[in-house]
Design a protein around this nucleic acid. Structure first.
Length: 369
DNA sequence: GCGAATTTTCCTGATT
DNA sequence: GAATCAGGAAAATTCG
């Protein structure tokens, strides 16, 4: 990673963690009379850091929670970040009971403003991106890049559901964390985005698969009914099934004003690893999470096979926010890798590819597992 | 703004 | 016949 990039990330993370003089418990004006503060009159999404602190303080008082147990790093977030934090994460941060209480109250507050949300704040792709970036900035230790020394300054409680074995930035993690079975609304979906790093939660074997089915009689190749449908809801143009022209469609530009805000939060450069082959690699090197999407045929040689080709394509499509991705298109992109020797041809074997000499990060020596 | 790189989309034809 | 593979062509987008 370029040093400037690293420093940008560190700055962002620091800015989010320590934007102002670090609040201390003694500085928090916990309402002694347990009256709700100004936060009660405001949509949680709009809360300032102070609002969040007051809200936490309110519940500390109400529940007689031992405030000395609070990790102030976890209290230092704004409402948008708080709303995007899952129940499990809150429980990891504040303990099962207090975190659960906070989550419950937050949900009811969010519900209070649900109408406003549905009428005025249908999240666009861009807005989802913002939340994603805020989450990454605010909790890089959850599944973000390894920020080294900075991360060591962050108290990561063992109760937080993180995969300690995974310090590499995993695009698969990033992606699968967005896919949850519960919600059908983009915002809700993202609030659950930290639900777990258990990618299994996004796989629903009982759900119907997209139109394809394998003709391969190999049982491993029989595609289990599978759905990764619209867990992330983005604005879609009507007439989705209309035949489109050649080439990639233009990016919607109906959020120009918001895009301006995005720029302050979103890195100018796309994160590394958004390449297809890296996405594929990440699925493969997380066998415990890939739920049989793909498998190694020969790990040593880098030979792998798609077991659920359409499902992988759907995942890739969702990662790229492209609901029309298919295995056919994905495989075209894969074939372009032959020329660059990122992949090598495996003749005569369907759905089988092989990493080439220009691919990295999949070998046992590199991954350590 | 330009150009290279990387997809994405559509297509035709071949193979399994 | 359906799924997959192969690769040309064109276009969109990102990034240096």
């Amino acid at each position: 990673m370029a040093s400037s990039e690293l420093s940008l990330i560190l700055n962002n993370a620091n800015a989010n963690l320590y934007p102002e003089p670090q609040p201390h418990l003694s500085m928090i004006n916990f309402n002694s009379n347990t009256m709700a503060g100004s936060w009660d009159q405001v949509n949680p999404q709009m809360w300032t850091r102070q609002n969040v602190l007051e809200w936490i303080g309110f519940h500390v008082e109400e529940s007689r929670f031992d405030a000395s147990l609070l990790n102030m790093n976890y209290c230092n977030m704004d409402g948008l970040t708080l709303c995007a934090t899952s129940k499990e994460t809150l429980m990891g941060m504040f303990g099962q009971r207090f975190g659960g209480r906070l989550h419950q109250n937050l949900e009811s507050l969010k519900a209070r403003y649900a109408n406003d949300l549905s009428e005025n704040t249908v999240l666009s792709e861009s807005e989802l991106d913002i939340l994603e970036n805020i989450l990454h900035d605010s909790f890089p230790f959850m599944h973000g890049p390894n920020l080294g020394p900075l991360l060591e300054t962050v108290v990561v409680q063992s109760s937080i559901p993180t995969d300690n074995s995974e310090t590499k930035y995993s695009y698969f993690d990033e992606y699968t964390n967005q896919l949850t079975p519960e919600s059908d609304h983009g915002y809700d979906s993202l609030t659950e985005s930290f639900q777990s790093s258990h990618a299994g939660s996004f796989l629903n074997p009982s759900s119907p698969e997209s139109s394809s089915s394998s003709s391969d009689s190999d049982p491993e190749n029989s595609e289990i009914p599978f759905s990764v449908s619209s867990k992330i809801t983005v604005k879609q143009e009507p007439g989705k099934n209309q035949k489109r022209g050649r080439g990639r469609p233009p990016k919607p530009r109906d959020n120009e004003g918001y895009e301006h805000f995005i720029q302050s939060k979103k890195s100018k450069h796309a994160p590394r690893g958004t390449h297809l082959w890296e996405f594929i690699r990440d699925i493969l090197i997380h066998p415990e999470q890939n739920q049989g999407l793909m498998k190694w045929e020969d790990r040593r040689d880098g030979v792998f096979k798609f077991l659920k080709s359409e499902a992988v394509a759907q995942l890739w499509g969702q990662k790229k926010k492209n609901s029309s991705m298919t295995y056919e298109k994905l495989s075209r992109a894969m074939r372009y890798y032959y020329k660059r020797e990122i992949l090598e041809r495996v003749d005569g074997r369907r759905l089988v590819y092989k990493f080439g000499k220009n691919s990295t990060g999949w070998r046992v020596e590199e991954t350590g597992y």
